[in-house]
């Protein structure tokens, strides 16, 4: 019973997300709308973590299981893949490194500027 309540609550928020996404003036996946709605509900304490934690922990802990069918579907695009394999791998790896360094230095710079500002105010 308790478990079904948890499942219902989470899926109900997902349904709201799907409906809201239909009415948004810009494209946004229903699941992402549901993520934002659930986060707001948690913030305003409309939903308490204890009301959804069992089902959420299960999904968060086994997320990779859900992607198996999508990965298997690569079979249908094997020819597309063969033709761009090296470019594909290069792009994946290079952009990961670029994103890593850009983020890391942006945060470091921001924290340095913030601490400098904070320091001046204290002085």
């Amino acid at each position: 019973m308790a478990f079904f309540k948890q499942v219902f609550l989470l899926f109900f928020v997902c349904c709201i997300g799907e409906i809201v996404s239909l009415f948004l003036p810009f494209p946004m996946p229903g699941s992402v709308v549901a993520l934002i709605i659930l986060f707001i509900f948690l913030l305003i304490k409309a939903i308490r973590p204890a009301q959804i934690d069992t089902v959420c922990n299960f999904l968060l802990g086994n997320m990779s299981f859900i992607f198996i069918p999508s990965t298997v579907s690569i079979l249908a695009y094997i020819d597309v893949f063969k033709s761009i394999l090296w470019q594909f791998l290069f792009i994946c790896i290079a952009t990961t490194i670029i994103t890593f360094f850009a983020t890391a230095y942006a945060v470091k710079l921001t924290m340095y500027l913030l601490s400098k500002k904070g320091g001046n105010e204290n002085a």
Binding site: L10, S31, L35, I52, D53, I66
Partner: peptide, 14 residues
């Protein structure tokens, strides 16, 4: 299995 994609995404909120 794919149907659980949306609730798993929403679970990221927690």
């Amino acid at each position: 299995v794919l149907m659980f994609l949306a609730p798993a995404t929403a679970a990221l909120a927690l």
